[in-house]
Design a protein around this nucleic acid. Sequence first.
DNA 1: GAGGGGACTGGTAGCGCTTCCAGTTCCAGG
DNA 2: CCTGGAACTGGAAGCGCTACCAGTCCCCTC
Lengths: 337, 337
Amino acid sequence: MAGGAPRRLPTLDEVAERAGVSRSVASRALNNAPHVSRAKREAVERAVRQLGYVPNPTARALATRQTGAAALVISGEDPSIFADPFFAQVIVGASAALEEAGLHLMLCLAASERGRERVAELLRGKGADGVMLMALREDDPLAELAEQAEMPVVFGGRPVGSTPRWFVDADNTGGAREATEYLLSRGRGRVATICGRLDTEAGRARYRGYRDAMLGAGIDPLPPREADFTEAGGAAAMAALLAEHGDVDGVFAANDNMAVGALRTLREAGRAVPAEVAVVGFDDLAVARVADPPLTTVHQPITALGREMARMLVALVGGQDPTPLILPTRLVVRASA
Amino acid sequence: MAGGAPRRLPTLDEVAERAGVSRSVASRALNNAPHVSRAKREAVERAVRQLGYVPNPTARALATRQTGAAALVISGEDPSIFADPFFAQVIVGASAALEEAGLHLMLCLAASERGRERVAELLRGKGADGVMLMALREDDPLAELAEQAEMPVVFGGRPVGSTPRWFVDADNTGGAREATEYLLSRGRGRVATICGRLDTEAGRARYRGYRDAMLGAGIDPLPPREADFTEAGGAAAMAALLAEHGDVDGVFAANDNMAVGALRTLREAGRAVPAEVAVVGFDDLAVARVADPPLTTVHQPITALGREMARMLVALVGGQDPTPLILPTRLVVRASA
DNA sequence: GAGGGGACTGGTAGCGCTTCCAGTTCCAGG
DNA sequence: CCTGGAACTGGAAGCGCTACCAGTCCCCTC
């Protein structure tokens, strides 16, 4: 905004005129479609350069019925959920994959009622070529909206209670099972879990993994101790756990944030980690490496998750029918267990 | 995508026909513009409901020459810079403010050359109604592009070496000065700084704050010890600092990530914090509360920064001429100093 | 040298919406 | 009962681009 006159941008008509061709040819040259002679193609390119022409994306969108943008919708009534670095990594992956495909990324934090409405409009009014949906809760109104949308929808993680046609998820159950089995294999007999919100599929799946591992070892699993995936929630859950089961010697926390909270509570309670209580997290965020002691955790490929979601969406937009993807997790052993 | 026929969405024409009015009236009714009788307005509303009509945002954009979207561009050659939770908070603020104004948020991680090009197109081709620009480096090519763009541009933080017409920044110098003065006031005589990248204005401004405070107290400031705003960088810088100035008793780190790294190095070196060395950070991210010991740090209103950037942009898009904003910081005293 | 096919070309019809403007309707006031 | 003006209405002209299609041109083959 140089403050000068609001100069109109050159249009394709002007480019065509300057290049001495028709608008159609100019259009084809620009989209390097066939049926343009070499000479005219070059003339068009020259005209574009001279005029500093940039195609108007809106007009193009109207004509092609493609917006050139994909939306990433993050549900959840509390916008602070987004503060979880998890999403930042997803975005990095999705952004890179979309960029490759020439799509823009629209980010929708569907927290407020108003935000939800706007997502609904987006979905129903073709405001984007496709949508990636994450962090859905049980009975999330977005789920139904997505179902009805005449638009490709890829889920990141699965919604509770239904398996969408297209999704990318991490192997939550497998990862949680591996974590728990690891604790058991290290001689921990009283292993508890601080599970995430059980109104999310990730929370449930990770609890299932814990339970499966316990049952597999012939030990009664403890009932789920639910927390909200935050550090504070993890700390509180750990405190409650100590109060009820003072003899616990291993904890699988369903994400790193809660694990870090648990570490804090244990430290404050004077319990040595891992000597007295071993702790395993889930996610392998940056915080896991920095925690004290460094956190043993289940690594999930978060950036890849974003990338694959975007790729799946791109395939869908391109008329293909990709298959859902479940990404592998792996245990990263550090000092806390 | 129910898999059914790709049913065409109802258009305004159909709404108008059904309501028994002309397209113009229907349009006006929808945008609740004047010159529509009550009866027709209601008829239109009814038709909209019956048909499940949603205006096509692309067509609207073409006609109004407004895209209804604002872009947030985060520069930096390394996309992992985005992993800094700082940006997540900015996004939360910006998203909320844009939502209020009815604008969508496009997120551009301008890391690769390709990404940069796409931003350039966005800027020159009116792909958005306005742009928020962050994390510019010295000689960032984006700066010039923004200058030439016929489009409102708001800077988050200031680019090195120039003061843009519209920006929102935190009081970096003031905050850094306060942090350093606090260390000095607690009897620390050998205060060093781990400063951020000096090819960013934030890095420079915070170093200036440190230097000013030192000079104000009549003490020679140490030369800037540059790190890259990451935890690993902070840890390395702290190690180097200990090697060169073993008697340091206070450290001001230019952000929390580096401060946490410094804490780790100090712990590993067996230096007690704050007894032997006091540490102060900058940002007041979540990690500061969780650090061991909890980090004394300079709080900056990051969400507000995002919010105010967006508001400024909205004002600009609306034809107003807002004034730049410098947001206050404040020292949050915890255990590390 | 005529016929045929393929590579180009440009006119034209949209895409779905807003907005200008000329025309119509409706009342209050004269 | 007529007039003037305000409120309302709808036809039509775009916004800038793509895409279909009929037409032109060139060159190769029989």
